[in-house]
Simulated scan of single mutants.
Amino acid sequence: MNGPHPRNDPTLPDRSGESFAGLGLPPALVRELAHQGISAPFAIQAATLPDGLAGRDVLARGRTGSGKTLAFGLAVLARSRGQRGSTRRPLVLVLVPTRELAQQVTESLTPYARSLRLRVVSVVGGRSISGQARALRAGAEVVVATPGRLADLVERGDCRLDRITVTVLDEADQMANLGFLPQITALLDRVPPGGQYLLFSATLDRDVDELVDRYLTDPVVHEVHPSADALAATEHRLLDVAAADKRAVVTEIAARGERVLLFLETRHVVDELTQHLLDSGVLAAALHGGRSQAQRSRTLEDFKAGRVTALVATNVAARGIHVDDLGLVVNVDPPGHHKDYLHRGGRTARAGAPGTVVTLVLPQQRRAVVQLLEQAGITAETGAGAA
């Protein structure tokens, strides 16, 4: 894309209050949405679906939890109806940064794909590559993939990208931050030119700009502001603590019995805190990249079901985890970047539900945390002691 990115174009129609049928979705998808209890589109869905359905390239910025998965998913499924992928040659590629997000996207889209008789396959690391290769040989219209595993399958000849007509880059900023950019460009260079691109990201920065400039053609840009996707539903608090009191404060918060997601910086401290909480009688579990995919999936299911009430995690959980009615996220260790703060906080107050983000702040961390919140555009209340 040449020239500056358009922002908030006043000539774009206001589609707030529009129905899914009015946005142009086929009846089968509208019926499935109703079956799933979804009656009206979120702001980002209302904004992007008409352009996605029309085949335009779309660059969309929206907060985590704003409904991005259905915003691109419904569009690509509607555009793929009546088509059939062949052996090893899918029609739609959805690239995501983490295994958890791939699983979430696949689970979210599967019922809608089924209503149109389309097949969705997920390919991620940590799972049997031979099983994924068999699924691709059986044929699928949509492949949801992390870049590393897809690159392996392409290299083996188990997946070909020469029939891809629609490409989605979900959480593009995170993929760039994780160092996937070379793999992504190598994969996208195998996609035939002239196809549709839908790029969704919580933030737009230099690395994302590189992808936009290289692959998107005259994209329509949609930015859904926090006011439009219920950022106001989140309460942000800073909790000043002394180093000697920090573990006791965390234990008190985790022991309340309500589900809480606790973020720390490293795997080691996650495991250490998890064991301490278990020893204190808290139903706790650890989630980080050192666990197998089967362990991570089982832990998430236990958390969603309430069998685990305190999920202790590294940033691996900051994307791709959707837990209904999760009311509290605690930054035990403040994140190092304002983007990470936004994505951690995006695990609560999803789809407009209320939620609270608490950040524990040691005296020597206060200045950096205040700057981080300013960069994130967040106003937080300050307190001391236990939350």
Rank of each mutant, 00 (worst) to 15 (best):
D333I: 14
G194C: 02
L95N: 01
L12M: 06
G82W: 07
P50V: 14
P90A: 09
V332C: 04
V191L: 09
A244R: 15
L116S: 08
N8D: 15
L74K: 13
R61E: 06
D162W: 03
Q364Y: 06
T11F: 02
E301Q: 10
T167I: 13
A140D: 09
F263I: 14
D302W: 08
G346Y: 00
S16P: 05
E265T: 13
R137Q: 14
N315Q: 09
A318T: 12
V143E: 04
E18A: 13
E171D: 00
S280F: 05
A145N: 05
R56H: 06
G281V: 14
S19L: 06
V220M: 08
R127G: 08
P219C: 07
S130Q: 11
A230F: 00
I253H: 03
A351W: 02
V168K: 04
L277V: 12
A40T: 15
R61F: 02
R319C: 07
G52D: 10
F180V: 14
V330I: 14
V370R: 05
A28F: 01
H268S: 15
L287S: 07
S39Q: 12
R256V: 13
A133P: 01
S39C: 08
Q375S: 12
T274V: 13
P6M: 10
H35K: 15
D173Q: 15
V323E: 03
E141L: 09
A380R: 07
I184P: 01
F42P: 01
L23Y: 00
A186L: 07
